[in-house]
Amino acid sequence: MEAFQPDPRLFGRPADDLDARYYRRMRFIRRFEEKLLQLFEEGILAGTTHCSIGQEADAVAVMAHLEPGDHAFSNHRCHGHYLARTGDALGLYAEIMGKDAGVCRGIGGSQHICAPGFKSNGIQGGIVPTAAGIAWAQKLSKSNDVSVVFIGDGTLGEGAVYETLNIAQLWSLPLWIVLEDNGWSQSTPLAANFAGDMRMRFEAFGLPVSEIESTDVKAIDEVVAADVARVRETRTPHVTILHTYRLCNHSKSSDARPEEEVKARWATEPLVIHAPRLDGGAREAIDADVESALDEVIEHARALP
């Protein structure tokens, strides 16, 4: 099978500077999901979907440091991770539209996506031991690849996570756990779900932890670049905690979070933070690129059988 070639208007070109590439990819994910929510409102999509608006910097920074042989396992909120890993807008739109050209031929839908080096599943926690198994397979095959798994703060309620933390450390597996703590587990705030200290939950198993509270893609980039390099070199597990915020609802319908809280967070979302690093003209050109490319993809996807 030929490797998928992402549209440079969405994914950038090798010659682009890092600021421009990161802005473009975050803008791509943001607009992909905003347009997806519009398609839901239009009534042409069935089921539900979990968007990651506000968390784009995590996906873009983490995926920028993965090699083709690495494996990323994502969760219900997987669009950003998938798009940052592959750049495949058409495959994902078509999938969510239930088209045969979808990346899983319409069977997986929004939460169950698969591509070379990427998978997602909609059950909380269960993907963590699976990612550890992939890490063990990488270790048995004596490769330099790493297995990264994305979890959220809500997933810290699942027992399978802790069974896996113990084994990953005990067996020295090249497992990289990226925890996106967006403060809300669907409609329940962290404080109502979570006892004790997040970092210490991992450190209790002897796992090294990095932690950053930021929506700045460059600050996150610095942390995750060092973390993935460490996993790759030492072949041991690592945890990266990214404290972030979800600006959209958990899924399609309102999750009843305080409006003022959400509104305040729009002032520090990843695009607002990163955009000033580009001059106005460059930014507008990227925005126009993303807009035209996504509109073409949607038009194409709509016409598919």
Binding site: P129, T130, G133, I134, N166
Partner: peptide, 14 residues
């Protein structure tokens, strides 16, 4: 749960 999940990952990994 980890035995089963790690087995799944091994199988996905060939």
């Amino acid at each position: 749960q980890a035995i089963a999940g790690i087995s799944a990952g091994l199988a996905l990994g060939g």
